[in-house]
Nucleic acid binder design. Structure first.
Lengths: 168, 168
DNA sequence: TATTGTTATACTCTATAACTATA
DNA sequence: TATAGTTATAGAGTATAACAATA
């Protein structure tokens, strides 16, 4: 309050962190209203986009370790949203599929994502939103973030290095 | 891969989450190189900006609970970076101050933040960076994020609701 | 009685490594 | 021997509540 230091540089990165955290938290609220954790939501989306994928591939695309998707899939399977089907080609693998209920929920999830997006960008005009999207895409590309499917934002998004904070 | 769905809307919020996470993770790496956790870093910055503040106020500004700043301050005090001085006005309070070593480290921390910022915005031109800063500030203001000092981005930035994921 | 700081406890999330079954 | 999935365990981070000192 008393001293309001430099405003020009060194602020944008923090703004980005804060707004990113805000966006993730708000979206988590929405998924929770659907009875889903963010991990659940990301899993449903990935399986919906790549039916038949294995748990290994799923884990890779989440940026997670294979043991971590197990309880998530257990929960989703128990709720009748996902099916594990043994691969006939290689019986070590499961082929992951959405059930009809899973598909339906994914539809609601997508609607929630759209609503989230429009609320988040509410303070901006359409032109400003488009410009922001353009700049963020540019930035993401410049840092090697895949814009397409991989590394969804739900599970531990984007940690390119090893670990983020381990120095005790 | 097979089906590449809508690219227009519903992407910006995820990009924001991803890039925010990336920014936070990269900055955490830098603080770690200085021997600091993100919590340490945020604490140093706040005390540096508000010398003499109490632990209660510190916790509030972090968006943390008072019991949480205790081990952080213990660690910083042990390393000779921070001092706890009993308030003469109200002896329940401590007045928090940086030592000379703490000041020096804060300087290095600020330099690291500048470097982080410039690396993060590296893919953009100066004009694009300025435009991005403008749009993000607009967005932050629209969502009631305080641009100034409160709610630093280091400790659990910006969770406006209650809890983010508790529906098991 | 209310408040500051502290301690003790428990809960959540996550990764690591050992294990099985297939290949 | 190598790989997909699973289980068990441990570690980090965090909040809640009970506590002591001061007001």
């Amino acid at each position: 309050m008393a001293t309001t230091p430099r405003v020009g540089s060194r602020r944008t990165a923090f703004l980005l962190s804060q707004l990113g955290s805000l966006s993730a938290a708000r979206f988590a609220e929405r998924t929770r209203e659907l009875g889903l954790t963010p991990s659940d939501a990301g899993t449903l989306r990935l399986i919906g986009r790549n039916p038949g994928m294995s748990q290994r591939v799923l884990a890779d695309r989440m940026g997670a370790v294979p043991s971590r998707v197990v309880p998530v899939l257990d929960s989703l399977e128990t709720r009748g949203l996902v099916e594990r089907v043994r691969s006939s080609a290689d019986r070590r693998n499961y082929e992951l599929h959405l059930t009809a209920a899973g598909q339906a929920l994914l539809g609601r999830l997508r609607a929630a994502a759209e609503k989230h997006e429009s609320e988040l960008l509410g303070p901006l005009t359409a032109e400003q939103s488009a410009e922001l999207a353009r700049l963020l895409a540019l930035l993401a590309g410049g840092h090697g973030l895949d814009l397409d499917a991989h590394r969804e934002t739900t599970m531990r998004a984007a940690d390119p290095g090893k670990r983020t904070a381990g120095g005790k």
